[in-house]
């Protein structure tokens, strides 16, 4: 009976550790996807001259889940006749944010991009997108560092915490 309980405790804590570590590895992955998204957006705007709503549909088709939702929502809000592109962008950010692994830094970058989106000519639009990409790159670097530093540790920490608890209980 005791052994069974111990196994359950260790399994649970190990699982918790892995979950926590997954969050750490999810962030750089999603940041990478966001960068790809903004690069595609740049191509749509600068070379395709695609209207924002249409460009968002294209992006939503290309991207994996949480990010695809974001662009889908932006397009939906534009079609519903939002008063400005910024408003559609910001409210979509707020809605989708909780489903992503992003943090405040990325949020700020995206907000700033939203303030300029669709309001300027091609050159200016490209500059803003490039700027956002540079910021995201920095965030991605930090996220990766964090992942390397803590991912393994957290995984083993979960397992070890389980063992500690079992020893204490025995």
């Amino acid at each position: 009976m005791k052994i069974l309980g111990a196994i359950i405790i260790i399994a649970a804590s190990t699982w918790a550790g892995f979950e926590w570590a997954k969050k750490l590895s999810e962030r750089p992955k999603q940041l990478r996807q966001l960068k790809v998204a903004l690069q595609s957006l740049e191509a749509e705007i600068v070379y395709g001259l695609t209207p924002l709503g249409q460009a968002c549909i294209h992006l939503a088709e290309q991207l994996p889940k949480p990010l695809a939702w974001f662009f889908e929502t932006v397009n939906k809000k534009l079609e519903e006749g939002s008063s400005s592109a910024q408003e559609a962008w910001d409210s979509s950010l707020n809605e989708i944010w909780k489903f992503t692994a992003f943090r405040q830094g990325e949020m700020e970058v995206m907000r700033q991009l939203g303030a300029t989106i669709g309001k300027h000519d091609r050159d200016h639009q490209q500059k803003q997108l490039r700027l956002a990409l540079i910021h995201l790159e920095r965030e991605e670097g930090e996220a990766k560092e964090e992942q390397v530093k803590y991912e393994k540790m957290i995984k083993s920490l979960g397992f070890l915490a389980g063992i500690l608890l079992v020893i204490l209980l025995i």
């Binding site: 705007i45 534009l78 006749g81 400005s84 669709g118 091609r122």
Partner: peptide
């Protein structure tokens, strides 16, 4: 604000496409 909204609608929120 009204003129801004009109321009947004006319350009489909994408001024860059109206160069």
């Amino acid at each position: 604000q009204e003129s801004g909204q009109l321009l947004n609608k006319l350009s489909q929120y994408s001024l860059y496409a109206l160069e």
